[in-house]
Structures are given as C-alpha cells and as structure tokens.
Design a protein around this nucleic acid. Structure first.
Length: 1001
RNA sequence: GCUCAGAUGGUGGAACUGGUAGACACGCAGGACUUAAAAUCCUGUUCCCGUAAACGGAGUGCGGGUUCGAUUCCCGCUCUGAGUACCA
C-alpha cells in the first residue's frame, strides 16, 4: 500500500490513548527525566501553526529520552483561569467555566492530532477546585511565614511570635515593611490581639498594603507590572492609570538576592537571564542621610541619626516631627563633595513640610503639572528639564555645606528612597538640571572634563574633596563610607529595582483568596475548609458600589467575617504547577514527599521568552519559598530552559487597479512601477515611440502590455499628461495561495465582490506579493494545524516545523516547502515496499555502504537532539533515505534501526512500519536506541582538497594511512598539481591529516 | 540611550573545535512519462565573463586586522529584531 497517513495516524493515536503508552512510572529503576512545556491558556481561537513548535521539540526530546532508557515525565495541562473567558462571560453571560471547558476540548483535539506523547493521566487545570485548593494552601503558607535575613530563609510566623514573646523585637533581622514597631517582650504581650496581628502583617510574606497599582478601568482590574506595556494593558491594549488601593502583595523582594544568584546555577538562554537580572536590578552603593537645616546639626556621636533601621524619612508625612534628615541612595558615594543640590520626587512625603511659604506657589504648580502628565507623557518627555525649588536646605553631613532641596519628576518615588543627591559634574541628568536652573557644578576629579556634559569617570584623583583629595576611586569610596559610618550618617547599601508583587485582581475568574476579614484584619480560613470554592454570581461585573464581582455572590461570608473579594492573579496557579504533575491526584498534599523526592525538578523546560519577568520569576520565587519550608528539594525548579522562537505570519497580497475589477500580478505591478519615473507626467496621447525611448534611457525593457495597462488606468489631465489612478493592495487568505500563486477559482468564491474579478497574469499565473506580519485573523495569514494535518498528516507537520530552522529563532510560517518533507516520508515508506507497494524487506547481511548510512544517522541524531538542533536532523534523515534509496536498500536490520531513530520525529509512520517488521504493537516507544559503532564510518581514503594560497583548486584521493610528509610528496608528484604550480616550488606546504593540503607560493 | 540576539543564493537554511561556503529542501528552468493535466521521475540551478563545456574572476551586511587558511577569532561601523527605559 502507498503511504496512507490518515489511517496510520488515527490508528496509532487511538492505540496510544487506549494503552496508556506514555504513562510515566512513579517508581522506576530507570533514571528520571522531566520534560515540560509551558502550559497554554486555552483561548477560543484554538491553536495556530506557531503554537505547537515548542511542543513538537519537547515531544521529540521526550520520545528520544525514552528510547535512551529514561523514565520520562512529559505532561500537559491548562492555565485555565484568565481574562478572555471572563470578558466573554461579561458579554454573553455564559459562565467562564463553560467557555473554558469548550476551549480546552478544542485544544485537546488539536494536540491529540499531532501525536504528542503526553501522559494525559496527569493533566492539570488551574481552574479546577482540586488544583486551586493547593494554590490556596500555598498562599496560606506564605501568609504564615516571614523572611529571616539572619538564616536567609523563610520561617514560620509562630517562630517570630515566640521570639517577640521572649525577647521583643530586638534581634529580629527581617525583610518587612518600613514602619515596624520596636518593643520589649512585655510590651508585646501587653498589646491586644488586634495590634499584634496588625504588627505581624508587616512581616508576613503575603500581606496587605496600600500601594500604587496599575489600574485598568476598561478591564476593571489591577495589573502586574509585566502585564502593562507602554502604559497600556498587554491584553486588549486598554489605558492603565496609577491608583492607590489596598492590595495583597507578595514579598518577592525578600528573595531578590537569591533570585539573582540562582541565575548563575541554571542553564537558561543568556538573554533571558539578562532580562531577569535587569528586572531584579541590583545596584551596590551607599545610603546617606542629609540632615535638614534648622534642625539639630549632626553631632560627632551621630545623635541626630538614631532611628529605627527600616524607617523611611517620615512616617507622619505632614510635618517634620521626627524627620531630621533626608536619606538618599547613591552608587557614587565617592562624589559626595560634588553634591550641589538634592532632588526629591514630587510625591515624596516631606514635600509639603519642606516647602517654604515663598516657594509654595511654585511647588504647587509643579506638582499639579506633574500629576496631569500620564506615565506615557512622562516617559516621552524624558528630555525636557523641569523642577521646582522647595526653599529648604539640607547640610552635607561631611562638611556642613548648605544644599538646596528641589523637587523634579526625574526622581522616581518608587525607587530607592525617592531622593537623590545631585552631582552635576558626574551625572548627565543632574548636569542638565544644574545648567537649566543655574546651579553650581563642582568638579571633584582632576581629569574630569565638564565643559559640555557631565563626566562620570572613575579614573584620576579627587579634588575639592576634603580628606579624599589625592585618592583614587577605590580608596576614596572605602574612606567615605567609613567616615559616614563613623558619624552615623550613612552606610554601604545594596538596592534592588524589583518591587513586591501585587497579588490580587478585582475579577471573577480566578482563585478566591482563602481569607476573611474581622475587625479590619485578615484571617486565614481553616485548612480543612479548603478549597474555598469560587461562588456563583449573577453577573461578571463589579457591583454598583465598585466592588469586585465576588461582592455579588450570595452567602459569600465566613461565620467570623467577610471573605476577601478580589481573586488571585493569573500567575498564582502557574507558579507551582510542575509539582502537581508529579502527583496529580493527591488530595492530601500538593504532591507527595515521595513523588517530589523522585522527580525533584524539571530537567528541560521549553517555552516562550515572553514569560521572562512574569511566570519564570514568580515560579522561581515560590519554588525557593517551598524549599525554605522543606516541602521541595531543589533551589531552582527549571534546570535547563529553551526558548522557542515566535512563528510569525506570512501575508499574501493581491493588487487591484483603482476603480476596476482587474487584479494585476505582482511582477507586472513591479514592472509598471519601475516605469513610473519614465511615464508619469511626461507622455502624451499616442506617443508610444516616445515612451519606448524614455523607458530605454532608464535602462528598462519596453513592454507594450505594461504601457497599455498604464494608459488604460490613467486620466488625461488638463496639462495633457497621463496621470495613473493607482492601485489598492488587499490581504488575501494565505490558504488559497500556493507558493505565492493565487488559486483564482477559490479567490472568486472567497468573497462575493471578487466573483467577477479579472486578472492580469504573468506566465498564466497570478503571483501574490508577500510580507511578514503577526499571525492574525485580520490579516488572513493564520495557518491552522488541522488543515496541514488533513493534507499531509501529523508526521509531516512535526518534521516540517522542525525543518523550518533553529528552534530558538523567530521565523515566518511559510507552507512552501512542506512538500519536500512529505515526499521524504513517502520515500522512507517506499524503502519497505516493492514496486507494487507490497511490504517487502530482505534478511540478507547489510552491506558496508548501508551500515555506513545507518550509523551516520544514528550518531547525527544523538548529537543533534542533545543540543536541540532538530532542523539539522531532518536534513540528515533526508540524506540517509536518499542514500539508502540509491543503494536500493530493503534490508530488515538496517531499516528496523532506522525506524527507531526516526520514531521520535515521525512516530506514527514508524509505529506502523515497526509492526509491519513484526514487532509487538506499541513496543517502539521503549525500544533501545541503536548503538553507534564508529567502525562502520572508518574510511581508508580521503579526497583531500588541494588548495593554493587558501583557494581550493582540486581534490586528490589519498590513503588516510599516509603521514603528512608522505602526503606532501604524493601531492607534489601529481601532474595536475604541478600544472597549478606552474613549475615553481611552493614556499611552504601545510598538511593537516584527514583535512586539507594548502600550498603557499 | 542602554542590554542582548542576529545579518550566508530567488526562499527556508547547512557548514558543531579556524580547514572543500551554499549540505538538505523549496522555487525556477529543461527533459521523461501522458491525448492532456495532475502526480511521479531525471538533469541543471551563488554571481560575473563566455554559445555550452573546460577555464578564469568575485563572493557569507560594510571597512580593517590576525593566520598558510576566516561564515567562524579580534577592532571599528551599518542595518534588522527583542527586551528595557530618567534606577540615582
């Protein structure tokens, strides 16, 4: 029989499903290997041809690892909470669970068609209660934990309470809120429960706080920083504004250093790690306290600086009560004698208190102006210098010099302390600011050149710097930090850009937070009441009073108080899901100790780089937290990670002459356009000869048809010249275009207004133009895997997606060329069949040439798969099959090994051939990968390229047993070589055995 | 602006540690089979000069360098894509 991919693929997909072929074993003598794909959000549009790219790669890898004797865990599931289903619910009233189920069914059908070796018995869905029960449970663990800086890990809140009871707040070194109380053990015990709980909330790893959030009015929810792009929501593109709200947050900043350090231990793409490093944004420098003038000056004992460690400038905000200094963060503390002004953010809490009556009008005007600017304007406006003087001064803690305090929006309230010491000689922004407002610029390094711009050099010796004069950068920095520490005015400090992550959405379709409120304070629900089920609501909209949709749910109340109304964000469920696959049906734990001890971590994780600062960072954070609680084993969850490139769309265009039904073929249009310089505004009626002459002056071939098209579609203007009316281009459905050739009949049926279209063809065809664009419905360039599979089959799709190019590279999808892969599979099939398409293999001894082809591919696939170079394997398969076809090979021993080697790429056809060869059905997936034997590749001769001055001139067959000296003699003795040398003796002969001979003349 | 990745025929791409640039495939051209078309098969296909071949020259974004030899290493530049954006 000819290659009947439809029957074969259906048959084997059914077989695998019915026999649980790809079930991973929970206990096994084999080594484990965990291959994971980033699980999809099941969107209504289903899969397009770009989505499975990574899944195909991971599937090939998983199948290969099974052949190599590993117990492979290769699961799939759905990140099924999310906005689109909810938006749909708002529009139609259909429960998002119903939408989600329907979408999942589509995804599952599409995934099954591609022949993935997923262990579906472990499927997870983040929106399913038996899954989100454990998301809620992990939330509870975070609530019950705090971060101990001394042990550098998360610990139980109970332990913190015990410490408070025994020793008070002394000796606690925690990552916590800025304004924590200090108290003795007795003071703690004297506090009421409410006060105690309120204080503990400042330590918990998930906590409530009033924070500035990205509020998206159109979506009615808060968005995470990574969900906002250029001031608009990533999903939907709605405007986002800043708003203060009481919010659940995750204290991810506690893990900043570990998240950064961990990057050095994992095998991830460098750009991805770089993105995370930038996001974490560690900078090393110093914090310096500048005393505010008119308050007690700093005494040598540093009395003015007795303050609680984590305290910000002023907790009170309004007046200067207790605030005796402004703290800044700087990475160039060595430049402190160059400070000529201080700048604080317009939102800084001390602004009002610091503003003198004379400056009030200025400052108020500036703040109003700043508030009006949206985030976007502020970014676009980066180059304009603006600011206002408060009228107040601080003193330089080292020399008591008066330093004016300004406000300006280039200082961000959210970074560092919201205040900077401005050193205009060394910092370009400060320089521009100083120039603009006529503030002094003091050079502090001898070689500094500050004529036209700031010079941030660290070379040279310090000047104008008191005790630092004459020192170099390193000593100066050490000296100034020592001095600041001695007087209590500053210390070395590390600062992170990363903020705590907001953990709440004012939406319906997410995990309920397992918390109720009593007396305004949050309390966890009892663990035995998990999962806290998502209640039914009448509408998926906020309540009339602006509360989240859960505010509509009837009876949504804990006996002790009100439930939380916001739900968890999208990243909650995806931050631990790889553990659930290890033990997907456990209802006593998120995964059993044994399962975690066996599977440990993900060995290979494949997915898109768009998750760099979202999912992949949050997952690492939760993983580290779970590790601190000894619930998991590894510090990092994903040992090796590969980003698959994005598949872009390739659009096709047709070109219609304006006001006609005529479509002009692409190359004719190009030719017409190339005539424009000659034709436009120059020609008069019936002057073809003139045109011919003009066209030839442009060095173009004259074409009468093009001339006529031009004339037919031009108006004769009053000036007596022809004016071309132009053309329109329209996206045409790529599915009715083949190799850029338009299927005219399908095109006429495609849209009613094209039914009577006419065509200006080239060589009898209509050629379309093309361009790379995003794959989207509106551009008619979406290619559906279902269509490809029905035309060529899943095996062809799998191989073609790999054949397209390196996995990591982004590339446009172009179905041109898929025939080549299909032909290859058919050719492979034919090796096993005779002329009459009857299965026929021989049991003869394989020939040397056959063995060589086989062993070349055995090794090549091993090498390629191990380094994720799937595209080169496909080419090598083609070469192998071409060679075996030329050898007329139908040898059982050879072909059986070929089947195993190819089976991870094209599993269906291989399963079929495997059983035709007489092997038990289904045993292919666990067959041993053939052992490579280098003996079959040994050559006794090599066609040495003979080059002269590095240019190859000819090849000579020389025995590989010859040593360089003998090779040289052999080559020089050759008559053709002598002809090239033209009788001269070469100056030098380089011989690399088995590689090349090069002669220098 | 900064950081990272990339640039090879008409197209997708190969060349893994410096050693025959363009494997493999698409497309295109020519041919076989066919009444014809599709399908299939065969041949050619980097560019330039040349009727074809032989032969010769150029050639991996651009300009230099190291080397017997550079797509590969070094320096400078151009362009494309991604991320980030006043981070003190």
């Amino acid at each position: 029989m000819d290659y009947q991919f439809k029957d074969i693929e259906q048959k084997w997909q059914q077989f695998w499903a019915q026999n649980g072929t790809f079930k991973a074993e929970d206990k096994s003598a084999k080594p484990k290997y965990y291959v994971l794909d980033m699980f999809p959000y099941p969107s209504g549009a289903g899969l397009h041809v770009g989505h499975p790219l990574g899944y195909i790669a991971s599937d090939i890898f998983a199948r290969y690892k099974r052949l190599k004797g590993f117990n492979v865990l290769h699961p799939m599931g759905y990140d099924s909470f999310g906005l689109p289903a909810e938006q749909y619910a708002i529009q139609t009233g259909q429960h998002p669970a119903i939408t989600t189920d329907a979408n999942i069914a589509t995804y599952r059908r599409q995934l099954d068609q591609i022949g993935f070796s997923f262990d579906w018995s472990r499927e997870v869905r983040t929106s399913s209660p038996d899954y989100y029960k454990w998301t809620q449970w992990i939330f509870m663990q975070l609530f019950n934990s705090w971060y101990n800086k001394d042990t550098d890990k998360a610990e139980s809140i109970a332990k913190l309470v015990a410490h408070f009871e025994q020793k008070g707040s002394a000796g606690i070194n925690a990552v916590c809120d800025e304004e924590v109380l200090s108290f003795t053990a007795d003071e703690w015990k004297a506090l009421g429960n409410r006060e105690q709980q309120s204080e503990l909330l400042k330590y918990r790893l998930t906590y409530l706080r009033e924070s500035t959030v990205n509020w998206c009015p159109a979506l009615g929810t808060v968005l995470a920083n990574d969900e906002v792009k250029d001031g608009f929501s990533e999903r939907g593109g709605y405007p986002v504004e800043q708003k203060k709200m009481m919010q659940w947050s995750m204290r991810i900043t506690a893990y900043a250093e570990r998240l950064l350090q961990g990057l050095d231990t994992i095998d991830w793409p460098e750009p991805l790690k770089e993105m995370q490093r930038n996001w974490i944004g560690k900078s090393t420098g110093a914090s310096v306290k500048f005393p505010i003038e008119a308050l007690p000056k700093p005494s040598p004992e540093g009395r003015a600086f007795e303050k609680q460690e984590n305290q910000k400038v002023s907790p009170t905000g309004g007046d200067l009560e207790g605030a005796r200094f402004i703290e800044v963060f700087t990475t160039r503390v060595d430049t402190i004698f160059g400070v000529t002004f201080l700048v604080i953010a317009p939102e800084h809490e001390l602004v009002t208190a610091l503003t003198t009556p004379e400056q009030k009008a200025d400052i108020d005007a500036y703040i109003t102006q700043t508030k009006k600017k949206s985030e976007l304007d502020r970014m676009a406006d980066a180059k304009t210098v603006s600011g206002a003087f408060t009228g107040s001064y601080v003193l330089n803690p080292l020399n008591n010099e008066r330093i004016p305090i300004w406000i300006a929006d280039y200082v961000l309230a959210g970074y560092g302390t919201g205040a900077v010491m401005a050193v205009p000689s060394g910092d370009q922004r400060d320089y521009l600011f100083a120039k603009h407002f006529n503030l002094p610029i003091v050079p502090i390094i001898d070689i500094q050149n500050i004529e036209t711009e700031a010079d941030p050099t660290k070379e040279g010796k310090y000047i104008n710097s008191d005790f630092m004069n004459g020192l170099a950068y390193k000593e100066a920095t050490a000296a100034v930090i020592a001095k600041l520490e001695a007087i209590g005015a500053g210390k070395a400090k590390v600062n992170f850009r990363m903020r705590d992550a907001i953990f709440g959405r004012q939406r319906y379709w997410g995990e309920p937070v397992p918390v109720y409120f009593k007396d305004g304070l949050p309390h966890l629900i009892e663990e035995q009441h998990l999962p806290l089920l998502l209640p039914e609501v009448d509408k998926y909209l906020p309540t009339e009073t602006g509360e989240p949709p859960l505010g509509r749910a009837e009876g949504w109340k804990h006996p002790e108080g009100e439930y939380e109304l916001s739900t968890m964000p999208g990243w909650a469920g995806s931050s631990w899901y790889w553990y659930r696959y290890m033990d997907a049906h456990n209802d006593a734990a998120f995964a059993s100790k044994e399962a975690i001890a066996y599977w440990k971590d993900v060995d290979l994780y494949i997915g898109g780089s768009e998750h760099a600062t979202g999912h992949l960072l949050y997952s690492r954070f939760w993983n580290k937290f779970l590790k601190d609680l000894d619930l998991v084993i590894e510090e990092e969850p994903f040992k090796k990670l590969i980003n698959q490139g994005m598949i872009q769309g390739r659009s096709n265009f047709v070109y219609r002459l304006i006001k006609t039904k005529r479509f002009i073929s692409y190359n004719k249009l190009k030719k017409l356009e190339s005539y424009f310089p000659a034709l436009l505004d120059t020609i008069f009626e019936d002057s073809e000869d003139t045109v011919k002459a003009i066209v030839s002056t442009f060095k173009l071939d004259y074409d009468r048809e093009i001339y006529n098209i031009f004339k037919e579609n031009s108006d004769l203007t009053d000036a007596g010249v022809w004016k071309f009316k132009g053309y329109q281009f329209t996206n045409v459905d790529v599915n009715i275009v083949n190799n850029d050739v338009l299927d005219i009949e399908k095109f006429k049926k495609w849209r009613p207004d094209f039914a009577d279209a006419q065509f200006i063809l080239e060589n009898g065809k209509y050629i379309c133009g093309h361009e790379v664009e995003k794959m989207s419905k509106s551009k008619f360039n979406v290619v559906n895997p279902d269509d490809i599979i029905s035309r060529y089959g899943a095996d062809t799709l799998r191989m073609y997606e790999m054949f397209l190019g390196p996995l990591e590279q982004s590339k446009p999808w172009n179905t041109n060329g898929i025939e080549g892969v299909f032909k290859f599979l058919r050719k492979f099939w034919r090796l096993f069949h005779n002329e009459a398409w009857e299965f026929s293999v021989s049991d003869a001894e394989p020939s040397k040439a056959e063995l060589k082809s086989l062993h070349k591919i055995i090794r090549k696939v091993e090498e390629d798969v191990e380094r994720f170079s799937f595209n080169t394997s496909v080419s090598s398969f083609m070469i192998a099959v071409n060679e075996l076809t030329d050898l007329k090979c139908n040898n059982r021993a050879i072909l059986q090994d070929m089947v195993i080697v190819l089976s991870s790429y094209a599993p269906h056809i291989c399963e079929e051939l495997w059983t035709l060869l007489g092997n038990p059905a289904g045993s292919l997936s666990y067959a041993p990968y053939p052992k490579f034997n280098s003996a079959y590749l040994v050559e006794d001769e090599f066609a040495y390229p003979i080059s002269i001055n590095g240019k190859t001139k000819m090849n000579l067959n020389i025995s590989l047993s010859l040593e360089p000296k003998a090779i040289e003699e052999f080559v020089l003795a050759n008559a053709d070589v002598q002809r090239y040398l033209d009788g001269k003796a070469p100056k030098k002969v380089i011989v690399v055995k088995g590689r090349i001979v090069n002669m220098v003349v």
